[in-house]
């Protein structure tokens, strides 16, 4: 199956938050009780009921005051730490190239929350009992697997969010970034085609990623690598070794004691 991807062109985005509301509508997510905090941005963060959110960034740079908008949500890493740490396979690599989430399988362990380098998954969780489900954008897996486009892409009024064949999106994004550079946006770039094995949500940026609140060089967390590749196998090995050691001991002692008895 050819991989799909989403391309968010921030230079076309108007911060209308249609994506944010369309996401809530399609997934029937509850609204949050918010207050104005001196910003257009609300709800204040991604949450169990907010999977997509537009962030607003007022940046004073060489070109005067800039107001950047970013349609933010899961970026669907190809090398996704969240998938690797998920003990129940609720988070999976979908053959179409995004990170799917089966809420029924999730047990709320929250490993994905700690593993994600972008702080995406959120847990609707009872602090005391730990009961809950992790949530995040799943690229409208129900729609996409039926050949439809994600709700946010469908609604985006200014046509800033595009969706389609991943390779085409990368090409389109690179073309846009190049065109922007030609227009004088020296810092313009396509964010994500090679990050974490390639993101499934890429961004055309007019300026440095940090100006949009994006990590400049997000990496697969070392702790997760160590945990997955080293400590977990090592631990399993340790338990096995212990069991083998004990079995060996059992055999040895039996034999030696048997000999002793014969001697007696």
């Amino acid at each position: 199956m050819a991989k799909v991807a989403m391309l968010v062109d921030t230079t076309l985005c108007t911060g209308c938050r249609g994506c944010q509301v369309a996401c809530k509508q399609w997934w029937d997510l509850s609204a949050e009780v918010t207050g104005n905090r001196g910003s257009y941005e609300n709800p204040p963060d991604l949450s169990h009921s907010t999977w997509t959110r537009v962030t607003f960034h007022e940046v004073e740079d060489g070109r005067g005051l800039q107001w950047y908008h970013l349609a933010w949500g899961c970026v669907h890493c190809t090398e996704a730490a969240c998938v690797d740490v998920c003990p129940t396979a609720a988070l999976k690599y979908h053959p179409l190239g995004f990170v799917s989430l089966e809420r029924d399988l999730c047990n709320g362990c929250g490993y994905c929350l700690t593993a994600c380098p972008f702080d995406i998954p959120q847990l609707e969780s009872n602090v005391l009992t730990g009961r809950g489900k992790a949530t995040k954008c799943n690229l409208c897996q129900d729609r996409v697997t039926e050949g439809l486009i994600p709700a946010c892409v469908k609604t985006c009024p200014p046509g800033a969010i595009r969706f389609g064949d991943r390779q085409q999106m990368v090409t389109l994004g690179r073309t846009r970034a190049a065109a922007l550079q030609e227009q004088g946006f020296a810092e313009a770039s396509l964010y994500g085609p090679e990050l974490l094995g390639g993101l499934g949500r890429m961004f055309v940026l007019a300026a440095r990623p940090a100006k949009y609140g994006l990590p400049e060089r997000p990496t697969y967390p070392l702790a997760v690598t160590l945990w997955q590749r080293l400590f977990q196998p090592l631990g399993q090995l340790g338990v096995l070794a212990t069991v083998f050691g004990l079995a060996a001991n059992w055999v040895v002692t039996r034999r030696l004691r048997g000999k002793k008895k014969e001697e007696v």
């Binding site: 209308c16 908008h69 200014p158």
Partner: peptide, 30 residues
């Protein structure tokens, strides 16, 4: 908001320039 689809189309395909005059930097101005 939907009008910006066509403004964006002009900017992308015709290299059109968007000029905004307003008391404050609006979402259009951005």
């Amino acid at each position: 908001p939907a009008s910006m689809l066509w403004v964006n189309r002009a900017r992308e395909e015709r290299k059109a320039r968007l000029v905004v005059v307003d008391p404050r930097l609006t979402r259009t101005g951005a």
